[in-house]
Amino acid sequence: MLNRVVLVGRITKDPEQKRTQNNIPVVSFTLAIDRQYSSESGDRQADFIQCVVWRKQAENMATYVKKGALLGIEGRIQTRTYETQNGETRYVTEVVCDSVSFLESKKQDSQPQPVYQVEEDDDPFISSNKSLASEEDLPF
């Protein structure tokens, strides 16, 4: 049996991190995914998919993701039920995310920012006298 989901869409509101009784971080969010076709009136339609992410990825989303961000997610579909205070049974179908990828770099003043900046301390070639191999040194 296989239960895998891969989606790309935009988050509909700023994520809000919550914690379980065991202090585990969790974020529930909705991903808006455009459909491939338009309605008869020419309007684009979208599906709104409920998603949940746990632990460190939930903390990262709460810190770095804002409404409208383009996300790629991979996970599995899960269904669950719960009972309301009125005794009604509610059914929920959601994607439990195994991984969340931020597909756009953070923008500031409409200028694209690098996804990763190498600090001088992180670059082994800046802080030492090491040099890259020349083409003749390569074994292939």
Rank of each mutant, 00 (worst) to 15 (best):
E94W: 09
K66W: 02
A32P: 10
P25R: 04
S105M: 01
T30Q: 06
F48H: 07
G87L: 01
R55K: 14
F48L: 14
P25N: 05
Y37F: 11
F102H: 03
R80G: 06
V26Q: 00
K106A: 07
A46C: 09
E74Q: 14
T81V: 12
C51M: 13
C97S: 12
V52C: 02
T79E: 06
E59F: 03
T89C: 07
Y37P: 14
T89N: 07
G68I: 00
R76I: 04
A32D: 02
L71A: 08
T84Y: 08
D43G: 06
R44Q: 08
P25A: 02
I33D: 13
V95W: 04
C51F: 06
K56T: 05
D47P: 13
Q57K: 12
V65Y: 02
D34T: 06
Q108H: 09
E74Y: 06
G87Q: 01
A69S: 11
N86L: 12
L31H: 01
I77F: 11
A58N: 01
K66Q: 10
G68P: 00
L71Y: 01
S39Q: 12
C97W: 08
Q78I: 14
K56R: 13
Y82A: 15
D43A: 10
V96F: 05
S28V: 10
S28C: 12
Q108P: 14
S101D: 12
F102I: 09
L103C: 07
A58F: 01
I77D: 08
G68S: 00
M61K: 05
R90Y: 11
N86G: 04
V96I: 11
V100A: 00
D47K: 11
S28H: 12
T93L: 12
Q85N: 11
R44F: 13
V52L: 03
S41G: 13
V96C: 05
S99K: 13
E74M: 05
M61I: 03
F102Q: 08
K56G: 04
D43Q: 14
E83H: 01
N60T: 08
E88V: 04
Y64M: 11
Y37N: 07
W54A: 00
Q78V: 08
S41W: 09
S38F: 13
